[in-house]
Nucleic acid binder design. Structure first.
Length: 515
RNA sequence: CGGGGCGUAGCGUAGCCCGGUAUCGCGCCUGCUUUGGGAGCAGGAGGUCGUCAGUUCGAAUCUGGCCGCCCCGACCA
């Protein structure tokens, strides 16, 4: 990988597929090829597809309109799914008193190293430095910028929960959080990120576990049906568990480079936070009991997952269900009259598409040329492009190009809305199938540790037996950089022997190198 | 926090070793011709060379400090 970086960037133009004689080295919009340097490809793509850029604040990004529009689609789909499962939204403060964070021992231990802390509340002008933090404005108790909200929320829930009649409490919040990461990557790991965090309180352990699993299912369904990204549901090992949780469930996805990405987590928190914050309720039988808790979240990291699951060397590929605009229509006109004719020609089709709920953009911007638009929309991942020129008007046709396969075909305008609707559905499922095929191609079972070491170099998911100890997990991580992504749920558990120690193992777990 | 790389116009860069105020491409502006895969020609605008100090008649170039960013690792969603 390092060698690849030193080779430098070999510029490419996807147009070379069609015109192979032009020197494109001077073109502005270029991205590195995946097989040349995957990390650089990812970075180029985020920037060139106009999804986000680095801000002047280290580790923080600016999410640009195109990227934010995709995030908004994710939000609205997820939000509807949360509401459908009985949850409501609320909002809790950005700042958390330091003392709250300290109340749950393993929680604070997990987050302490990456907290931003507010110590003062005022600035003042200074003859030498212009403006300084006013030393007289020191906060009595420092405030932590939330890295997650369990503590402030559970402190609040104490006042809300008195009786079994107040339960369950099913609340979600959309928010930003800050984790002072040492190393950041656009969308995948930023110091500030956007997410949702659900926090629920239940009367019984069974109910809380059920909730934890229900939300994991919601995430899995969202990932597969909207992101078109196959995921594996599983449980984290103790070392990968959320700080403060009894059990952490996750969905794991495989990126095109064979690395794993945790795409969502759902935690069964037991009574840990209820005990730390003294959240007690009276049962039907008039007993005082601590409530049972869950929390679950997905973040703007899903943007990274989306990019690395579907996109190619030509740019972004967005599944139709998450595309801000599903169909872009590009007129090819020599003059104003021709443009007007095209507009009249296609208007009924646009109306029919919109009536079907398809989002369409008719790009009649005459300051950009058709060829430029083709390349631009391809780079930005619009699922379907329709081009219309004089020839089409003569023939009653349009040219339809699909982003996922780059195939173009001429279609009659008759029933075009219907055909495009079907095409969008086909693209959505094709993307899922392609991603699933990739995952299957790079998934295998191994039994011996030597065999494992070879396999892990080739990437992908490796199913292997593990003796259940943290020591073995640690050893594998140190020697191969692979971690246990999860203990998969469901399927049949066939016992065996740990590939490292030979000790008995109840079932295979998934090892991979991960983001 | 370690290792590597880099800061020159909006973007990407040349120049640096061998000091003489800056190269080229893209983009931008104007005009004409163009428009079915990032158009062509002509003209034009745009730079305190990251920052501070030093050496020098003279610094993008040499010396030292500082700041910032990117990539790789440790940590993590």
């Amino acid at each position: 990988m390092r060698a690849a970086i030193r080779i430098g960037v070999v510029y490419f133009r996807h147009l070379l597929k069609y015109k192979n004689n032009t020197d494109r080295s001077g073109m502005a919009e270029v991205i590195t090829k995946r097989d040349q340097d995957y990390a650089k490809w990812y970075n180029d793509l985020v920037l060139k597809a106009d999804l986000a850029e680095h801000s002047d604040v280290r580790g923080c990004m600016v999410i640009k309109p195109h990227g934010y529009a995709i995030w908004e689609k994710m939000q609205s789909a997820l939000d509807a799914m949360f509401k459908a499962t009985g949850h409501v939204n609320a909002y809790f403060p950005l700042f958390i008193p330091k003392s709250y964070l300290a109340k749950e021992a393993s929680h604070v231990e997990g987050f302490a190293k990456e907290c931003a802390v507010v110590t003062h509340y005022r600035l003042k002008s200074d003859p030498v430095h212009g403006i300084i933090v006013d030393p007289d404005a020191k906060l009595e108790e420092e405030l932590i910028v939330r890295p997650t909200s369990e503590t402030i929320i559970w402190n609040t829930y104490r006042g809300w929960v008195k009786s079994y009649r107040d339960l369950p409490l099913l609340i979600n919040q959309w928010a930003n959080v800050v984790r002072w990461e040492m190393r950041t990557r656009l969308f995948l790991r930023t110091a500030e990120f956007l997410w949702q965090e659900g926090h629920t309180a239940h009367a019984t352990k069974e109910e809380a576990v059920e909730e934890t699993e229900r939300m994991l299912d919601v995430y899995a369904t969202f990932a597969e049906e909207w992101l078109a990204m196959p995921v594996i549901k599983g449980i984290k090992t103790a070392s990968e568990r959320f700080a403060g949780a009894v059990d952490t469930y996750c969905i794991e996805a495989m990126m095109q480079d064979g690395k794993a990405l945790q795409a969502g987590t759902s935690h069964f928190l037991g009574q840990n936070f209820a005990k730390a914050f003294d959240v007690v309720f009276t049962t039907k039988e008039n007993r005082q009991e601590h409530v049972w808790a869950t929390s679950w979240g997905v973040s703007t990291r899903l943007m990274g997952a989306l990019i690395m699951t579907h996109s190619d060397d030509n740019g972004l590929v967005i599944p139709p269900k998450l595309a801000p605009v599903q169909v872009v229509v590009i007129p090819i006109a020599k003059n104003e009259e021709q443009l007007a004719a095209i507009r009249a020609y296609i208007e009924p089709v646009l109306a029919a598409m919109r009536a079907k709920g398809i989002t369409v953009k008719f790009d009649d911007d005459d300051k950009k040329k058709p060829g430029w638009k083709f390349a631009e929309y391809e780079l930005k991942g619009f699922p379907v492009r329709i081009a219309i020129g004089p020839r089409d008007m003569e023939n009653g046709t349009v040219e339809v190009a699909r982003r996922d396969t780059l195939e173009k075909q001429v279609m009659q305008t008759v029933d075009l809305a219907e055909k495009v609707d079907n095409l969008l559905t086909a693209i959505q499922s094709n993307l899922y199938e392609k991603a699933l095929a990739l995952r299957e191609r790079y998934t295998r079972s191994v039994d011996g540790y030597d065999e494992f070491k070879v396999a892990i170099e080739e990437g992908g998911f490796i199913y292997a037996h593990w003796d259940g100890t943290a020591q073995t997990e640690e050893k594998v991580k140190n020697e191969t950089k692979a971690t246990i992504r999860c203990i998969p749920l469901g399927g049949t558990a066939s016992p065996g022997k740990c590939m490292v120690t030979g000790a008995p193992s109840a079932r295979r777990v998934i090892f991979a190198r991960a983001y």
